[in-house]
Amino acid sequence: MDNWRKNPRVFWILSAPPALWLLGFFLLPLALIWAYSFGHKEGIIGIAISWTPDNYLRALDPLYLQIFLKSFWFAGMTTAVCLIVALPVSLAITFAPARWKALLLVLVILPFWTNLLIRTYALIAVLRTRGFLNAGLESVWDSVDGVARAVGLDGLGAFTPPQLLYNNFAVVFGLVYVHLPFMVLPLYAALDRMDRSHLEASLDLGAGQFRTFFSITVPLAMPGILSGVVITFIPALGSFLTPDLLGGTESQMIANVIERQFKSANDWPFGSALSFILMYITFFALALRAFFSRGRSAMDT
């Protein structure tokens, strides 16, 4: 199997089913959507492909541009928070005793074993006005209040639970929760591969732990950081369920608009155009990553 040219029959037999699958259920529908994006509605269910750029021009309307920007903002915040949380987590796993590593990695991917919808509803239970988080805050508030009264101060008054759900905070919170494993795993892979003697050399040369982290660990883990950023940012950008369930009217992301076009608004051509704009942006992000990693590998050789 080292060279399929030597044995083309085996190659074709093995590759035909997945190739046909991809062709029939991915590439063809995608081409159809692409064609729709240049069409217009005809009647209630008909779509005429007239190669008009109208749908793309309509997407440039400030209303939609704003939602695109908001999606970028949410995805960017999510990626940044994931990176900040995931770096210490993956460092801790990397330097954990060998017998703990497997368990810790299982804990990281454990949420994947539960359906995303259920996980998101669980978050609602945590974040809602009378949810677990507010209940916890309230008990802290009450005890502080009790202590204050006991020492003769005025006390804090009644607890008014902050609104944690159905706003932008809830969306980013939910997105971070969903995407954190996507950041931890590539970071861990990069850190674990790293030659420890580089860190020891840095310490030996007089650098402290923080200096070593920023001057040596982070640059050496950069390929993993880039991978983590890309595979967190891209799905976060196209998120649909999280803003739908956790967000308010002001926290709609572009995927929610796309969904509405295909369902309630029944405007498939416009929904197709929005989908493809999102895809072009994704391709651009991937190209950017390829560009940066090429720069790095050119430096290495």
Partner: peptide, 12 residues
């Protein structure tokens, strides 16, 4: 100061 077996020269 130490000279490491793998040299540990910082590649970046």
């Amino acid at each position: 100061n130490m000279v490491f077996q793998s040299y540990a020269v910082f590649p970046h």
